[in-house]
Write a protein that binds this DNA or RNA. Sequence first.
DNA 1: GAGTTATTACTCGGATAATCGTTGTCCGAGTAGGATAGG
DNA 2: CCTATCCTACTCGGACAACGATTATCCGAGTAATAACTC
Lengths: 158, 158
Amino acid sequence: MSEGVEWALHSCVNLAWMEGQAVTAAKLAAIYGLPAAYLNKQLQALAKAGILTSTSGPRGGFRLAREPDRITLLDVVTAIEGAEDAFRCEQILRNGPSADPEIDYRRTCAISIAMRKAELAWRRELAGQTIADILAQVGRTAPAAASNVRSWFANVRP
Amino acid sequence: MSEGVEWALHSCVNLAWMEGQAVTAAKLAAIYGLPAAYLNKQLQALAKAGILTSTSGPRGGFRLAREPDRITLLDVVTAIEGAEDAFRCEQILRNGPSADPEIDYRRTCAISIAMRKAELAWRRELAGQTIADILAQVGRTAPAAASNVRSWFANVRP
DNA sequence: GAGTTATTACTCGGATAATCGTTGTCCGAGTAGGATAGG
DNA sequence: CCTATCCTACTCGGACAACGATTATCCGAGTAATAACTC
C-alpha cells in the first residue's frame, strides 16, 4: 500500500484540529519532515475526491470539505489508492480447459468470490471508522496533541 | 497485490484435484498459458512455506504438502505476499511536535491501530476459508471441472 | 481620505525525472529413471 | 535371466534482466492581499 495513505490520514487529522483554517501543503509536510511537493500531490487527490477544499494565493491552503464525522478512513484510502480491489481477478480460467467465453469469472470463480469477501470485510472495517473517531481516540490517549499541533502551526516560520 | 497470488491459488486447487500426484511447474503453467519460469518462482515460495513439496528429476514436480482442508487462503497469500501488513506505519509522529522517542507508535498511534484492525478483519476472513472450501464450492457450481483438469493433465504433451 | 488599479508574493496544479518492487527470463545443480554391460 | 554401473534427460532452484508503478521534484497558471496612485 502506498505510503501516501499514512500521510493523508495524519494530514486530515491535523486539518481537523485547525477547525476550518486553511493550512498550506508546505506546513502540513514540515510538521513531519515530509517532502512538500509530494504531499501536495496526495492532498490534490483528496481534494479531487471531495474530502478537502483547496484555495490558491496568499492565506490559501487546504481545509476539510466536511465535518470529521463524515469522513471515513475508507474515503481517504480510496482517494489515494484508487477504488479497485487489491486482488484483481484476471480471469485466467478463460484460458483453461473448462473455459466458457460467456462467463464472467470475476463473479463466478470461487477464488475470486472468496478473495472479494475478505476485501469487503476490510472495507467494511475502514468504512466504520471516521476521522472523528480518530480525534476522539487521540483525545483520550494524548490530550495535548491537538493544542501542540495548533501552536506549532501558529509559530512555524512562514 | 501481486498477480502471483491468483496463480498460486489456482495451482493449489489443481494440485488438490490431482490427489497427491506430482505435477510439474511447466504443466501447471500451460493449463492457463502462464509463463512457466515465473510460476515456478511462486511455487517455490509455496514450497518454502511448507504448503507444497517439490521433487526433482523425471516424474518430479509439486504436490500438496497436506490435506486441502489444512491449507487456508491466508497461508497461500502470506507465502506469496509476505507476512507484513499492507499498511505499514512509518511512525512519522516521531518527527512531529508531540514526539516521544520512548513510544512505539505502531502500537499507540490511533491511525495505525485503526488500519491494523481492518487488516485483521481481512486476515480473519482469509484464514476462515480453506482450499477444501474452494473445492466444495466448485464441485457445486462446476462439477465437471475436476475431471476436466485431470484428463487435461493426462493428455497434455510432455 | 477613499476608491481604483497595478503589483507582488504566494499557493495550488499538473507536467516531468529517479527510484524501487514486481514481472519475466535464463542457465546450472541435483535427481531419478532407464539403458547397458557384466556375471 | 539378474544385478550393478553408467548415462541421459528431466525438474527444481536460484541468479540475472526488463518493465511499470510508486516516489520525488520542478516550474507555470491563477489568486488574493498589498501597495501605490489618482481624485
